[in-house]
């Protein structure tokens, strides 16, 4: 689905990322973990052409329109309602306002935001805004979903709930995902493959691990799997 080869990113100084190789296979959940400031986000930004790398290539098997990007912050358009924010991508794809709004409403309701369609982002809580941001991306039915620490800003309870829901959705739909996170447990719980990025500058891929825990998974159940603790330890070693 996605192949990154020899990716090097620099912003004027020493490279932030150096010679990154990364594969995301179709139907798999891949995570990329690394310390804060190691340039994890830059990899996703290079994949979505928001930044152009010094060297290296990014190959996508799907058109750019089939890639969804869930950002770390939930910067919705403040002057558009929740419904309009969710419908935005559909409108960009040329879908008429009526059907786009209907589909947006279906997704809002799927994410537990029934009746919130007319609210503006300022009138929603942090968790609700995050759900709108998720709906905004999923409504386009992306074949590859990129997520940049999407739940970092949420409190623990909301975070757990939304993670669980999103994981369920990804498993049912066999979505291909690349998740960037610094939360090791979250990475193991969700992933088929975990990449470990070294501390920057000049961060590079230090290790790749497969997570052979049966699906469907649940955030809490996964932690009791015999695979979980040893893998967590390995990841810790890779990072230190």
């Amino acid at each position: 689905m996605l192949r990154v080869r020899g990716l090097t990113v620099a912003f004027g100084g020493p490279p932030v990322l150096e010679n990154i190789d990364l594969d995301v296979k179709a139907g798999q959940f891949t995570s990329l973990i690394g310390p804060s400031g190691s340039g994890k986000t830059s990899i996703l930004r290079a994949v979505t052409a928001l930044l152009s790398p010094q060297t290296g290539t990014v190959d996508l098997d799907v058109p750019a329109n089939d890639v969804g990007f869930l950002f770390q912050d939930d910067a919705l358009l403040p002057w558009r309602t929740a419904r309009q924010n969710v419908a935005l991508g559909l409108r960009i794809r040329g879908i008429a306002p009526g059907p786009a709004a209907e589909k947006a409403d279906r997704w809002l309701s799927l994410l537990g935001l029934d009746g919130f369609g007319d609210r503006y982002p300022r009138q929603l809580s942090g968790g609700q805004r995050k759900r709108v941001a998720i709906a905004q991306v999923l409504v386009l039915e992306p074949r590859l979903l990129l997520m940049d620490e999407p739940f970092a800003s949420l409190d623990a309870i909301v975070r757990m709930r939304i993670t669980e829901e999103l994981l369920g959705w990804v498993e049912r739909e066999h979505l291909t995902v690349l998740l960037v996170t610094h939360d090791l447990e979250e990475a193991i719980s969700a992933s088929d493959v975990v990449y470990v990025l070294s501390q920057g500058p000049s961060a590079t891929i230090r290790a790749r691990h497969e997570v052979n825990i049966a699906r469907p998974r649940h955030v809490l159940g996964t932690r009791r799997d015999p695979m979980f603790a040893p893998l967590l330890e390995r990841l810790w070693e890779d990072l230190s």
Partner: peptide, 29 residues
């Protein structure tokens, strides 16, 4: 807000949507 510009771009929007959804409302404010 550059984050909004990036949202529109990753959702596939071009100049037309940038102007209509981001620039005009910002300027109105």
């Amino acid at each position: 807000d550059q984050r909004l510009v990036e949202r529109i771009r990753t959702l596939g929007g071009g100049r037309r949507f940038l102007v209509r959804e981001v620039y005009v409302p910002s300027v109105t404010a």
